[in-house]
């Protein structure tokens, strides 16, 4: 299977009076079309890993290749363009813009690609329809239920046709029933070929993915907490 994400000995330290070494030599491979979860307790470094995977933050040493593109020393503009094209973000708190309708929220990434309003809205409607929200397209986020909001957010992540979907605790703000629904959506997207990476601390969510990557104290570990000798993408955990 072709790798879509390759991390090689990635290190990250937050500077300060006492420098905080949050990621130690992270080696990670994720294949195209995988559905994986990254699990760890809070403070384990999983948020930092997510930031680096999402090109939201830089790393100190090592290498990161996303969909064949080396992610290293990018300018703010280049990073913004790559995030826009390659990554679809789904956040715990949905992160929809409150004064924009569902359709406008979904169309927003296309606005930053310079696509005209008509075409933008047409593409946004397509995604909303795919997620069963066509009739809610003109509602503001405040008028939608949590599950609906998260589906709008997923539509926004999909609208640019990205290489990966990066979800940060996507069910953290949802009840268990809605959580299962959202996870079902991710499974369906994955079945259609989309690479989905879910960062979570919820074992139920992890169990719904095809592979779980455990992280503890800035290192990738086995499920029982012992250090993983090598990270092998073909090994199901």
């Amino acid at each position: 299977m072709e790798d879509i994400i390759t991390l090689d000995k990635v290190n990250k330290t937050y500077p300060g009076a006492v420098p905080l070494h949050v990621l130690h030599d992270i080696n990670l491979r994720i294949g195209r079309g995988e559905l994986v979860s990254i699990m760890g307790a809070s403070g384990s470094g999983k948020s930092t890993l997510l930031n680096i995977l999402g090109i939201l933050d830089s790393y100190d040493s090592g290498s990161y290749v996303l969909d064949g593109l080396p992610i290293r020393d990018l300018s703010e503009n280049r990073a913004a363009d790559l995030r826009n094209r390659l990554i679809g973000f789904v956040f715990q708190s949905f992160n929809l813009i409150g004064y924009k309708s569902a359709m406008e929220n979904v169309a927003l990434p296309l606005y930053y690609q310079g696509i005209g309003r008509k075409r933008r809205n047409a593409l946004a409607m397509e995604q909303l329809e795919r997620l069963g929200l066509a009739d809610r397209s003109h509602h503001l986020p405040g008028e939608l239920s949590g599950g609906q909001k998260q589906r709008v957010a997923i539509a926004r992540a999909l609208v640019t046709n990205p290489s990966i979907i990066l979800a940060d605790e996507p069910t953290g703000a949802l009840d268990s029933h809605t959580s299962r629904e959202v996870m079902e959506i991710f499974r369906e997207l994955n079945a259609e070929g989309m690479t989905v990476i879910i960062v979570t601390h919820d074992p139920g969510v992890g169990a719904a993915t095809n592979r779980i990557i455990h992280i503890a104290d800035g290192r990738i570990v086995d499920a029982d907490g012992s250090p993983a000798a090598t990270e092998n993408p073909d090994t199901d955990v």
């Binding site: 999402g54 939201l56 703010e76 503009n77 913004a80 363009d81 995030r83 826009n84 094209r85 973000f89 956040f91 992160n95 813009i97 927003l108 990434p109 930053y112 690609q113 926004r156 640019t160």
Partner: peptide
Amino acid sequence: GIRRAIGARPRS
């Protein structure tokens, strides 16, 4: 932050 995450350049 959201806008920047989904691809807004600083200039915009």
